[in-house]
């Protein structure tokens, strides 16, 4: 570059990559360029500092999403810390009405055949995306908390409607839903709806996965799926297999399932595609193979490093899994 100025450098795509260590090629290029042109070191330093300052700013969207998340949290917090007498009175009314409302809302439920959302055109939705490798806590305005799993997309209204609490999930999460018999809580996914009666459970409904699973710890949920309803009791899980199009209710290992919200991943005869998908969410890696990889992997992964996991895969299958930068290469052994 001739006569570099701060703005010339910052406008240069490859220079910005260099500042952010985004590409080895650009880094080599600019290191060499600086070696050959030491007189430009000062202006380069200035430009670099400026790039770092500019990328360290939150975007308008990020700010708004975070602000709404915080507002919901403090509203929920205030709700829970109202004077005690009023809360007890409320609980008494709730207990008295629960049976009645339960019966009525079941009727209402029956009339809503599909799992589509109610009329939501005038609702402000907040969309929360969780990047790979991260878990994220979200508190909703009603006191419900969700721990979202890596790679999830979760949408909720900035404020709930008067009669119903509806949210949307493509991904997984550990839900602790605040009981409110007057305002049913419903989670919608692409294929089913989970109606919750104050409860805690794990849910994994990634649009890209072959399986959708709802595992109930406490309370009661009603699952609406293909026009049928299925109630779950604590210790039961609803599993929908997209390939075979079959739904099943089974019992599950409660202690193990609880660890899922702490990052445990369980594989049972998992295909290569499934293993790759899950490990991408957990470790944020890409995958590359020139051959069709056919494995059936069973096992659990928790706090292990990615290296350990890849070694384990290499020992237990006919393939070699190696990490090159951020990509896992799979080769025939």
């Amino acid at each position: 570059m001739l006569d570099p100025t701060v703005e010339k450098l910052i406008s240069d795509h490859s220079f910005v990559n260099y500042c952010l260590s985004k590409s080895a090629e650009d880094s080599t290029f600019w290191d060499r360029w600086l070696e050959q042109n030491p007189e430009h070191r000062e202006v380069t330093d200035k430009a670099r500092q400026m790039v770092l300052l500019l990328v360290d700013q939150p975007t308008e969207d990020e700010f708004q999403i975070e602000r709404t998340r915080l507002l919901n949290h403090i509203t929920a917090f205030n709700e829970q810390h109202k004077p005690r007498v009023r809360r007890l009175w409320k609980a008494a009314v709730a207990a008295a009405t629960i049976l009645l409302v339960g019966a009525i809302s079941y009727q209402v439920w029956m009339h809503r055949q599909d799992s589509q959302l109610a009329n939501t055109s005038n609702i402000d939705w907040v969309a929360q995306h969780v990047p790979d490798k991260k878990m994220m806590h979200v508190a909703l305005a009603d006191g419900t908390t969700v721990k979202l799993f890596p790679g999830s997309n979760f949408s909720y209204p900035a404020a709930f409607q008067d009669s119903i609490r509806e949210v949307k999930l493509d991904g997984g999460g550990f839900f602790e839903v605040k009981h409110n018999a007057e305002k049913p809580f419903i989670i919608h996914t692409d294929e089913l709806a989970v109606r919750v009666m104050g409860t805690s459970f794990n849910m994994q409904a990634y649009a890209t996965d072959n399986q959708t699973k709802v595992a109930l710890f406490n309370g009661k949920v009603l699952i609406e799926h293909q026009g049928k309803q299925q109630t779950l009791s604590p210790g039961q899980a609803f599993v929908w297999d997209k390939k075979s199009q079959s739904a099943q209710v089974e019992s599950f290992d409660v202690a193990q399932e609880r660890q899922v919200s702490n990052g445990l991943v369980v594989f049972e005869h998992a295909s290569y595609e499934e293993v790759a998908r899950q490990l991408t969410r957990k470790y944020g890696v890409k995958w590359q193979s020139d051959i069709a990889v056919q494995i059936q992997f069973s096992g659990t992964i928790h706090q292990e490093s990615l290296e350990d996991v890849l070694n384990h895969l290499t020992y237990t299958t006919d393939y070699r899994f190696t990490l090159q930068q951020d990509t896992v290469r799979v080769q025939q052994n």
Binding site: P58, E62, E66, R69, F77, P131, K134
Partner: peptide
């Protein structure tokens, strides 16, 4: 970015609580 956003969320939650 995500770590910083999460930390700021925790900061203001704790502040209000």
């Amino acid at each position: 970015r995500e770590l910083v956003k999460e930390s700021l969320h925790i900061l203001f939650c704790e502040l209000w609580e």
